[in-house]
Design a protein around this nucleic acid. Structure first.
Lengths: 191, 191
DNA sequence: CTTAATTCTTGAATTAGATTAAGATTTTAA
DNA sequence: TTAAAATCTTAATCTAATTCAAGAATTAAG
C-alpha cells in the first residue's frame, strides 16, 4: 500500500487528508494466474494497481486477443472506454501471474475528486504519461516496420520477454505468432 | 474568444479569476492555407485553438506525411510529445484552410495551473476525451479492416470529406491514395 | 522418467496494401 | 477559355503478413 501512496505522492505532495482515502478506498486482493479482473461485455467499474505480479489488458478480435497493455509491478490498469462511458467493454483484463493487486471502485474513485482538487492534478499527470505512451505506439505503427517494433520492445521492455510466452508478445505487436517466429528467424540469420 | 471560454467552462464552472488569464494568455492569430504552426525538428511550445478554419497535426514517415488529427472549429491542437518532453517533434502542424486561431505559449499555460487547480480538472477532462479517441482509433486499427475504417470515418466525420482532398483522407487512414481509390471503387461496385 | 500439453517453427497458398508508372479527371489561374 | 497544376484512377509487380496445416521443441505433470 505504501508503494501505491508513494506513486501518487510522486506527482503531487499529498497530505494526510488525501492519503487517508487511499487507505480506505483501495482494497488488497490476491488473484491467480488465469483469473479475469474484467470480462468482455462487462462494464469496467474499477481501477487496479499491480503491487506484485502481471496482468494484461487485451482487446478481442474475433477469436483472438490482442494485448493492449502489460501491467507489471507499480502499474495502474483500467479499461478507460468502458469506465468513462459506462458501456460494455470489448476488452478483458487477464491475470497472467499470481498477483497482488489493489482495486478501487468507480464511486470511491470519483469521491477522491470531491475530497481534493489535488487528485485532478495526479490524474492529469498520469493521463499525460499514458497519452505519451499511446501516441508513441501509434506513431510507431505508422512509421516503423514490425521487425523494428519487435526490436524496440526487446530494448525497452526486455523484462516482459522473460515473463510471457512469445505468442503473447506477438499479439502485443499486433501480428500472429507465426509472423513473429519468422521475424526472429530472419534476425538470427543476419548475425 | 468567448467560444474558447465556453469550451473550458463546459468542463468546470469558471470564475472571473480563472477566465481573465484566458483572455490575457491566448492570442488571436490569422493564418493562411499552407502555413505551418509547427515544423518537424522544432520544439512544440504552444497550444492552439481553432476558432475558424482547419489545421492538421501530421507525422512524417520518410517522404510522406501521415495525418494524426484534423483540428476543426472549436478543437484544440498540440503535439504532446514534444510539448511535454521538450524534444524536437517528428510532426508538423499544417494550416489547411485560411484560419483564425488562438495560441497560448507553454509558460503561460503552466501559469494557469498555478492560478487554480480548476485547470487541472479542465485539462484532465480534455485528456480523458483525447485518450478515448486515441484508444478507439487504436482498437479500430487492430480489429476492423481499412474499408470499415473508411466507412466509419465517412459516417462519423462526413464534414472532413468536403474540406480536404482524398489523398489526405488516405493518409489519415494510414494507406496510400491508390489503396483508397481501390476501396472506393469496390464499394461503388457493390451498390 | 515418460507422457501430455503447451509453445514454437516451418512451409505453401492467399491476401491486402505498397510501389511504380501512366493516364484520366478535376480544379485553378493566367 | 485554355493551359497548367493538382488530384484521382488504373494496372502490373512486389512484399509483408495471414491462414492453414504439420511437425518440432519445450515445459509441466503424473
Amino acid at each position: 500500500m505504501e508503494k501505491l501512496i508513494a506513486k501518487f505522492n510522486k506527482y503531487v505532495s499529498l497530505e494526510e487528508k488525501e492519503i487517508e482515502p487511499i487507505r480506505n478506498y483501495f482494497h488488497k486482493k490476491r488473484v491467480k494466474k488465469g483469473d479475469y479482473l474484467l470480462k468482455k461485455g462487462e462494464i469496467c467499474n474499477k481501477i487496479f494497481y499491480v503491487d506484485r505480479g502481471l496482468i494484461m489488458l487485451a482487446l478481442y478480435k474475433e477469436n483472438r486477443k490482442f494485448v493492449a497493455k502489460f501491467c507489471l509491478e507499480d502499474d495502474l490498469c483500467c479499461e478507460g472506454i468502458s469506465f468513462l462511458k459506462e458501456i460494455p467493454t470489448k476488452y478483458c483484463i487477464e491475470v497472467f501471474e499470481d498477483s497482488t493487486i489493489y482495486e478501487i471502485n468507480k464511486q470511491d474513485f470519483y469521491n477522491l475528486y470531491k475530497i481534493s482538487y489535488k487528485w485532478d492534478r495526479v490524474v492529469r499527470l498520469i493521463m499525460e504519461e499514458h497519452i505519451l505512451e499511446l501516441v508513441e505506439r501509434f506513431a510507431d505503427i505508422n512509421t516503423i516496420t514490425t521487425k523494428e517494433r519487435y526490436l524496440k520492445l526487446l530494448d525497452n521492455n526486455a523484462e516482459i520477454f522473460t515473463r510471457v510466452p512469445q505468442y503473447v508478445i506477438a499479439s502485443h505487436l499486433g501480428i500472429t505468432p507465426e509472423a513473429l517466429s519468422k521475424i526472429r528467424k530472419q534476425l538470427a540469420q543476419r548475425k
